[in-house]
Design a protein around this nucleic acid. Structure first.
Lengths: 210, 210, 210, 210
DNA sequence: GATGAATGAGCTTTCATTCAT
DNA sequence: TATGAATGAAAGCTCATTCAT
C-alpha cells in the first residue's frame, strides 16, 4: 500500500530507478560494446529482468538516445571545466579542444553510439523529436568553444562558428581514424595531430585581426 | 561433350555472376544499411537463394571485404585521375582531396563499411591477412596525395606524410559529420569546409619553404 | 563418338569408375568420419563433381550400403585367411576371433557405419533388398567360425551357431565399448578381454564332448 | 505484488517444465531417432517454440547429457533394486545383469545416446567436465555388480572388476546386435544369449575358489 | 512496478539433390 | 557422362519484445 506516498516522491523514485537502468546500460555498453549491449545484459546489470526495463524505456533505441544525451551533457561540462581552468583565450581554446579529444578517447563507445544512432544502422534511429533534442545539446556543447574562438580571433559569431565546426570536424576525423586503428597503420599519433591542428588554428586566428 | 563451353568462358561467366552478387550486396547495403544486409537479402537482390551465394563467397565477411577492397581500388583510381587532370601542384592537391570527398559523398555506405569492418563490431571482422591487404590498399590510395603535398611544400617525405594524414583526418571528419547529418544541424556546408581547409593548407605549404 | 565401344566394355568402364567413387568414399569416410563424409567431399576425393556421383549411386545411403558390403566381404576374407594360416582347430578359432577384432579395431568407421546404417539414425537406412543382401554377407562371414567351433567342440551346427553368435556378441561389445572410450575409463584392455573370453570358450568347448 | 507465488513455488514450477522439456526430448528422441531430435522438434513436442527451450537448456548437447545422466541414474537404481530382491549371490548376479539387459531393451534410445554422446559424432559432444560426471555415474552403476561377483567367486576387487567389465561387454554386445536387428537375422534370442553367458559365468565363478 | 515465460522473426551456414548444358 | 549452378529445407541459436500474473 503506497497510497501514502506523494506523487512527486513517487516520481522521484521512478526517475531514480530509471537512472540506475541507464547507468547499467552505459556500463554494459562500455564493457561489451554495441553488439554486447542486449536488453538482457542491460537489465541484468541493473539488477532487473529484461521485461522490467520496458517500464522505463519503451525501446532499446530510447536507451541509446538517453545515453547519448547524457554523453553530450557531460561533454559540455567537460569543455566548460577545461575552459574555466585557463586564463588566456589561447589556453582556453587549446584546453577545450583537448578536452573533447580526451573525452571521446576515453569513451570510444560514445563515439560509436553517436555514429550508430545518427547514421542509422537501423532504419530510423529515433523520432525527430529526440533527434532535435540531441542536436541542441550538441550545439550547446560547442558554444563555449565558439565563444573562445571568437574572442581569440576577433571574429564575428558566424565566422567563429565556422571555425569551430572546422575544428570539430578535424577532431572527429582524428578520433574516428584513431578508433578504427587507421592512424596506427598510418603511423600517426592522434595527439600530435590535434596539437598540430591547434598550432595552425591559433596562428591563423592571431594573425587574422592584425 | 562440354566442348560447347570452354573453361575460359566458364570462368568468365562465373566471375560475371560473382560480380553480380557483389553488386547486389552493394545495392542492398546502400539501401538497407549494414544491418539490413543479410545474406538472404543479398541473395534475393542477386536473384538467388541464400545458399547460392555461398558458392561465390564463403562468408558474409568475405563479401564485406571484397566490397571494401573494390571501393579502395576505385578511390585510388579516382585520385589518380583527378591528379592527372591538373597542371599545377596546387591544382593537383585540391583536386585530389576533392576527389576523395566526392567519392565518399556519393557512396556513403563505403564509409560505413570501412568503419564497420575495421573497427570490428564483430570481434575481428576479417583475418589479419585480409586486413593487411586492405591496409596496403589504403596506403597506396593516399600515396599520390602525399607526393603532391611534398612537392608543393618542399617537404620531406615524412613531413608530407604527416600533412597528408592531417588532411585525411579533416576530410573524414567532414564526411562523417556530414553523413550523420550533424553538419546540416550546424548549418555548415561540407564542401565549403573542405575548401576552407584546402585554402589554409595550401597557404601554409607555400609559405613554409620561404 | 563411342559407338565403337562394345556394350560390355562400356559396362566394365562404368564399374571401374563406380569403384573409384566407392574407394574415395571409403577414404573420406576413414579420414573425416561419418559427419565429414558429405557428397561433395566424396566426389572431390574421387576427382568428380558432386553431381557426377549421382550417375553411380542414386543416394548417399546407397554408398554407405556399398561400403558396408565391401567391408563385410573383406572381413570374410580376413577371417578365411586367419583360419587358413593355422593348423589346429583351437588355433583357428583364436585366430578367427582375433582377426575380426583386429579388422574393426583398424577401421572403427566400419563399425560406426554398421551401427548407423542398420540402426537407422535415418528413418529407413536402406531398402529391404539391400538389407537382406548385407545380412547374407554377414552370415557368410561368420560361417567359417561356426565350422571351426563345431569341430572343436564336437557340436551340432545349431549349437555351434549359438556359440558363434555368443562370441560375436562379446566381440562387438568389446569393440563398441573400446571405440567409445568406455573401456579406457574402466581401465580395461580390449585385447586382454578378448583373450580372456577365448580362454574360457576354448576350455568350455574342450570339456563339453568328454 | 508477487506475494501470490513464492520463490519456492516458482522454482518448483520451473523444474517441472524443465522436466517436461526433457521428457519431450526423450520422446522425440525415441520416436525420431538422434537425427530427428532437432531443437524445433523437441520444442514442439513440449508445446514450445524453439527459442523457449533455450531458457531451460542452453544447448542441445546439454539436453543429451541430461537425458543420459538420468538414464544412468535410473540404471543404477534398477540394478540396486534387482540385487536387493534376491537372497543368494548367484541370484543377485543374475538379476543384476538381467536388469541391465531389460533396462536397455526397453529404452533402446538410451543406448544410442550413450554411444553417440561418448563417441562424439560431434567433435566432442560435451565438455570434459560433463564427460567425467557421466563416467562416474557409469562406474557407480556397475559397482554393485562387481561386489556381487567378488563375493560369489571369492575374487579380489581387481579380478572382480575384470569379470564385471567382461560381463558388461557381453551384455552390450548382445544389446547392440539385438538393437540393430542382427540377432534376429542370426536367428538368436538375446535373452537366451544372456542366460547362456550367465550360466557360464556362474559356473566359472563357483569353480574358481575351490 | 517487476517477473519470468514465451514468442516469432530472424540470422548464418550446410548439404543432399536436381537439372540444363 | 560430367559439370557446375542452383535449390530448398533444415539446423542451432539469439534477441527485442509482449504479457499474464
Amino acid at each position: 500500500m503506497d497510497g501514502a506516498m506523494p506523487a512527486n516522491r513517487r516520481e522521484t523514485n521512478r526517475k531514480f530507478r530509471q537512472d540506475a537502468v541507464l547507468a547499467a546500460a552505459q556500463q554494459v555498453f562500455g564493457e561489451q560494446g554495441l553488439e554486447g549491449a542486449t536488453m538482457r545484459a542491460i537489465a541484468q546489470a541493473a539488477g532487473y529482468t529484461a521485461g522490467a526495463v520496458y517500464s522505463y524505456y519503451p525501446t532499446k533505441e530510447t536507451i541509446y538516445a538517453e545515453i547519448l544525451a547524457h554523453s553530450l551533457a557531460e561533454l559540455r561540462t567537460g569543455i566548460a571545466a577545461a575552459i574555466a581552468a585557463e586564463k588566456t583565450d589561447e589556453g582556453r581554446l587549446r584546453a577545450a579542444i583537448r578536452a573533447v579529444y580526451a573525452f571521446y578517447r576515453s569513451r570510444p563507445q560514445d563515439l560509436d553510439l553517436g555514429l550508430y544512432v545518427f547514421q542509422g544502422l537501423r532504419p530510423r534511429g529515433l523520432g525527430p523529436e529526440l533527434d532535435r533534442q540531441l542536436n541542441s545539446r550538441l550545439i550547446m556543447a560547442l558554444q563555449k568553444i565558439a565563444g573562445t574562438i571568437a574572442r581569440l580571433g576577433g571574429l564575428t559569431p558566424l565566422a567563429a562558428h565556422r571555425e569551430t565546426v572546422a575544428a570539430i570536424c578535424h577532431l572527429f576525423g582524428v578520433l574516428v581514424l584513431a578508433g578504427t586503428g587507421r592512424l596506427k597503420i598510418l603511423d600517426s599519433d592522434p595527439e600530435i595531430l590535434i596539437d598540430h591542428y591547434l598550432d595552425g588554428l591559433v596562428a591563423r586566428l592571431k594573425r587574422l585581426p592584425g
